[in-house]
C-alpha cells in the first residue's frame, strides 16, 4: 500500500508541475500587440490591372488612413475574406486607402492573378516578391490586416480572416 501511495504522490507532483507548464506556456503565447508603432514605408510594384489607376509602384500615403491586407494565392481564408474587404473598400474609398499585399507566393504569379480574377477586388494590390515586407511588418501568417492611422502609426492589426463587423469598427476608429 505504501508503494502505491508513493506512486500516486510522485505522479501527482509531476502532474502539478506539468500542468503548471501547460498553463504557463499558454500565457507565454504571443499576446495582443501594443500599438502605436510607426509602420515602415514601402514601395512595391503594382499588379498590372491596377496600374492605370494607381501607378506602377505604390507606397504608404501621407495624411490618409490605410488598410494594408496581406494575402497569398494558396490561402483559403484570404479568398473567403476578399468580398468583405472589397465591400468596405467601395464604401470608404474616398477616405481610406486599401492596399492588398501579395506575399509568400514566390513562383505563383499565375495563381496570384487567378486569385485577383476570382475575387474581383478593385482596390490596388502590390507584389511582395521577396517576402521582405511581410518580415518588416512582423507578419504572423496570412491573411493579416493592418490598420494604419493618418499619422502613420499602427492602430490595430488583425491576424486571420476578418469579419465585416470587425472591419467596420476599425474603419470608424481610423476616421475619427
Amino acid at each position: 500500500m505504501t508503494r502505491l501511495l508513493i506512486v500516486v504522490v510522485v505522479t501527482a507532483l509531476l502532474a502539478g508541475l506539468f500542468w503548471f507548464g501547460i498553463t504557463a506556456s499558454q500565457g507565454r503565447a504571443i499576446g495582443p500587440t501594443q500599438l502605436g508603432r510607426v509602420m515602415p514605408d514601402f514601395s512595391r510594384p503594382v499588379f498590372a490591372r491596377y496600374q492605370a489607376e494607381f501607378g506602377e509602384t505604390l507606397s504608404l500615403p501621407t495624411g490618409k488612413p490605410v488598410v494594408v491586407s496581406f494575402w497569398a494565392s494558396w490561402c483559403g481564408p484570404c479568398h473567403a475574406q476578399a468580398p468583405t474587404l472589397e465591400a468596405a473598400w467601395r464604401r470608404y474609398r474616398d477616405q481610406v486607402l486599401f492596399i492588398g499585399v501579395n506575399t509568400q507566393d514566390r513562383g505563383n504569379e499565375r495563381q496570384a492573378e487567378a486569385f485577383l480574377n476570382q475575387s474581383g477586388i478593385t482596390f490596388p494590390n502590390v507584389k511582395d516578391l521577396d517576402n521582405r515586407l511581410g518580415v518588416d511588418y512582423g507578419l504572423f501568417g496570412v491573411p493579416e490586416t493592418f490598420f494604419i492611422r493618418r499619422d502613420g502609426t499602427l492602430q490595430h492589426r488583425h491576424a486571420g480572416p476578418i469579419t465585416t463587423a470587425q472591419l467596420s469598427a476599425q474603419l470608424e476608429e481610423l476616421l475619427q
Partner: peptide
C-alpha cells in the same frame, strides 16, 4: 524572437 510588443507613444 517573433514578437511585436512595440513601444507606443
Amino acid at each position: 524572437r517573433h514578437t511585436e510588443v512595440y513601444q507606443p507613444d
